[in-house]
């Protein structure tokens, strides 16, 4: 691998890690508070991409307006999922699994109905051109994902550690019953966690829309990676999800460049299997975030 390819792959890795982190953090967050996995999380990402397609491509508004609209729309979807599904399934893991897998299918069909069948949607790239570092070319559209993801993650961390509501969310993830005795409404916290999960998945989908293939099934691939990421990082650990996203983002990108994407996927699953054997609680794993 020559230097230019290396630089290019490095930048691609950072971009890939950013997307993985955005998607996985939401999954880990919701799991931390509810101890339930949301299998429709990939479809949240997909809806984020379609919202951008609608606002930017179909309505012709500014790209960033599309991004800003996608965040609350998918956050609301998260809240609705909590109200309609998780509040009713309670701690029944199997019911939560069935219901959210079902929700994933419903959202896929809904996307088909609203935005039509056929090939993937084409989006005009709002930021044409590429950054040139030596002989390496990386499209601006991919590069802007990186600062957006970092900003979102910093904002999330700030919220969790400096805002009273964020601290209450952490308290609730660590010990819901005791949190309720302090006056924290647990249901509001699970709703908040699902809103944050939706917001970050929606942001990731919107940012990726111009460079990814927009189809109703685009969430499938990313949600599997997100699950691998949170298993490696520690299922309920937000920090662990970020660390694991970076590790897997780099490994996936480098293996894809050097070998191929099938091998990269296998290596990713291999790392998860290895983690489960060596450190079953995950890299930064503990019971709660």
């Amino acid at each position: 691998m020559d230097l230019d390819t290396f630089v290019q792959t490095l930048l691609n890795s950072i971009q890939t890690s950013s997307v993985y982190a955005l998607v996985a953090v939401g999954l880990a967050m919701a799991f931390g508070v509810m101890k339930m996995a949301n299998f429709a999380h990939g479809e949240f990402y997909m809806i984020g991409a379609y919202v951008l397609y609608q606002v930017y491509q179909l309505w012709g508004l500014n790209f960033w307006i599309g991004v800003v609209v996608a965040i609350p729309v998918v956050a609301l979807l998260g809240v609705a999922t909590e109200r309609v599904i998780f509040r009713n399934t309670g701690a029944n893991i199997l019911a939560g699994f069935m219901a959210t897998v079902g929700l994933g299918f419903v959202l896929q069909v809904a996307a088909l109905q609203i935005w039509g069948h056929g090939l993937m949607k084409r989006i005009d790239t709002p930021y044409m051109g590429a950054a040139e570092i030596g002989d390496a070319h990386v499209g601006w559209q991919r590069l802007i994902i990186i600062p957006c993801a970092i900003a979102m993650l910093i904002a999330l961390r700030w919220f969790l550690y400096n805002v009273k509501l964020g601290k209450a969310l952490r308290a609730c993830a660590q010990d819901p019953e005791t949190a309720s005795l302090q006056g924290i409404k647990v249901r509001n916290m699970t709703m908040l966690a699902m809103a944050i999960a939706g917001a970050s998945a929606g942001l990731a989908g919107a940012l990726m829309a111009p460079v990814a293939a927009i189809t109703p099934y685009m969430g499938h691939h990313i949600v599997i990676i997100a699950f691998i990421v949170i298993v490696v990082g520690g299922t309920a650990s937000v920090g662990g999800a970020v660390v694991a996203a970076i590790i897997l983002g780099f490994i996936h990108t480098f293996v894809t460049t050097l070998v191929d994407s099938t091998t990269a996927a296998m290596v990713g699953v291999g790392i998860m299997a290895l983690t489960l054997v060596v450190r079953p609680q995950g890299l930064l794993g503990r019971e709660t975030p």
Partner: peptide, 24 residues
């Protein structure tokens, strides 16, 4: 009254086994 309302009445519960928030 729900447990999350009980502190409003002026009742505090120190649970068995302490139950501090371990990662805070």
């Amino acid at each position: 009254v729900a447990p999350d309302q009980i502190t409003k009445f002026g009742i505090a519960h120190v649970p068995e086994g302490r139950h501090v928030f371990p990662y805070m």
